Simulated assay, not measured.
Amino acid sequence: MRAAATKGVGDTVTNPSEPGDGRPDPGLSAIMSERRQLINLAYRLLGSLADAEDVVQETYARWYAMSRQQQEAIESPGAWLTKVASRVCLDLLGSARARRERYVGEWIPEPLPDRAEWISGRPGGTTVDPADRVTLDESVSMAFLVVLESMTPAERVAFILHDVFRYSFAEVAEIVGRTPAACRQLASSARRRIRASQAPTAPAAQQAGIVRDFKQAWEAKDIDALIGLLDPDATATGDGGGLVRAELRPVEGAEQIARFFAARASATILECTVNGQPGLVAQLDGVTVSVLAFDVAGDRIKHIWAILNPDKLRPWTTG
C-alpha cells in the first residue's frame, strides 16, 4: 500500500525565538516551517507523540548549535533537518526494543485525536499550534502503527521515508547508512509485513456504525450482541504501562472479549476519532481514562486496542 504523500507539509510557527546570537535570522521562518513535517515524520517512526516532540527539539538544538556560517553552507536546511531527525529516530528505535522489554504489559502506540478534539483537548484548554499537529491519514491508523512496531528499525525508517514521505532510496540510504539497493530491500520487506497483516478495510461509514453498535452493546452489557460484532478470533489489547490496571496479555476470542468488556461497563463511553479512524473514549467523572482504537474488517471487529496509560492520553485530557 502507498499512503498519501506527506513530504513538504509544513505550517509556519508564529513568533519563534531567534537564534542564540540575537541577530535577525532571515531563514528562521523557513526553518521553523519544517516543524510540522518533522513532527509527522517522527510520530510515524516512533509511535509516540512525546518522543516525537523530543526528537524535533533535539533536531532544532543541533541546528542552532551551528554557527551562522555553517548554517548558510547547508544547501537545503529542510533536508538537513529531516536527515538529523530521522537519524535521531533510528537511534531511539534501536534502544526502544530494550525499553519495551522492561515495559509493564503490552506497549501500544500513543493515540491521537482528530483535529477538533486535538485543539480543544489540551490540558488547561490551550490551543495546540498547527505545527504540532500530526496529519491523520492511513499511515497513522492504529493497525498500521502496530505493524510498524514489528519491523526492524532500519525497515521502519526506510519504509516510512520512501513509501509515506516519498524520499528516494538514494536519500534514504544516506540517512540509514545502507546502500540504495539495501534500502529498497528493507522497504520491500516492510511492505510484505503490511500486506500480510492487512485484511480488506471496511468503508469508513461502515466502521463507524460497527463501533457505534459496539458502544451500545457495551453500555447495555449485551454479551450476545458484543459477540456478534467481534471476529471469532478477535484480540483485545490493553496498555496501562504499569501506571494503571490493565491486562498484561491480550484477551483472545469473541466470547472472552465480550465478557471482559461487559464486566467493565461503568464508564461514560463517547464516540470519537482515534488516529483518523472511528474509536471510543471512556471517561470517569469527565476524565478520559481510556482510548479505544479498532481494526474492522468486513462487518466484524478483528482487533481492539485500549490505551489506559495516562502518559499517552495527554492530548485527550481536559482541564
Results as ranks from 00 to 15, higher is better:
Pro180Ala: 04
Ala3Gly: 01
Trp316Glu: 04
Leu90Asp: 06
Ser67Val: 05
Trp218Gly: 00
Arg36Gly: 09
Ile257Ser: 00
Thr235Asn: 01
Leu41Gln: 05
Thr14His: 08
Glu255Gln: 08
Ala187Gly: 14
Arg212Cys: 04
Ala199Tyr: 02
Gly125Phe: 15
Ser120Asp: 07
Val88His: 02
Arg62Ile: 09
Ala263Lys: 12
Leu161Phe: 11
Ser189Arg: 14
Ala158Ser: 11
Leu270Tyr: 15
Gln256Lys: 03
Lys83Trp: 02
Asn40Thr: 04
Ala234Asn: 04
Gly276Tyr: 14
Asp21Gln: 05
Gly121Cys: 07
Thr12Phe: 04
Glu219Ile: 02
Ser141Asp: 04
Pro153His: 13
Glu18Asp: 09
Trp218Asn: 00
Gln185Trp: 10
Lys83Gln: 10
Thr12Met: 05
Asn40His: 07
Leu38Gly: 11
Val55Cys: 03
Cys183Arg: 12
Trp80Gln: 04
Gln37Met: 11
Asp11Glu: 12
Asn309Thr: 15
Arg36Lys: 13
Leu248Phe: 09
Glu252Ala: 06
Asp132Arg: 15
Val134Phe: 15
Leu93Cys: 01
Thr201Cys: 10
Asp285Arg: 03
Gly253Thr: 11
Gln37Asn: 15
Ile39Gly: 06
Gly94Asn: 03
Arg97Gln: 13
Ser33Ala: 13
Glu110Arg: 13
Asn40Cys: 02
Leu229Phe: 06
Gly124Leu: 07
Thr82Glu: 12
Pro109Cys: 11
Val140Arg: 14
Gly286Thr: 04
Ala196Gln: 13
Tyr167His: 14
Ala208Cys: 01
Val146Tyr: 01
Arg184Asp: 03
Asn275Met: 05
Asn309Gly: 07
Ser29Cys: 00
Glu53Gln: 15
Thr59Asp: 13
Glu219Asp: 09
Val274Asn: 12
Pro203Gln: 04
Ser48Trp: 08
Pro310Asp: 00
Ala267Met: 15
Arg193Asp: 12
Glu53Thr: 09
Ala52Val: 05
Arg102Leu: 12
Gln57Glu: 09
Arg156Gln: 07
Pro113Arg: 08
Leu270Gly: 09
Ser33Gln: 10
Ala181Asp: 14
Ala61Val: 00
Ile257Thr: 00
Gln70Phe: 09
Leu81Ala: 02
Ser17Asp: 07
Ser141Trp: 10
Asp295His: 08
Thr273Trp: 11
Ile175Leu: 03
Ala4Asp: 13
Val164Pro: 02
Val9Gly: 05
Thr152Ala: 03
Gln256Asn: 11
Leu148Ser: 02
Pro180Gln: 01
Asp21Leu: 01
Ala196Ile: 06
Asp129Cys: 02
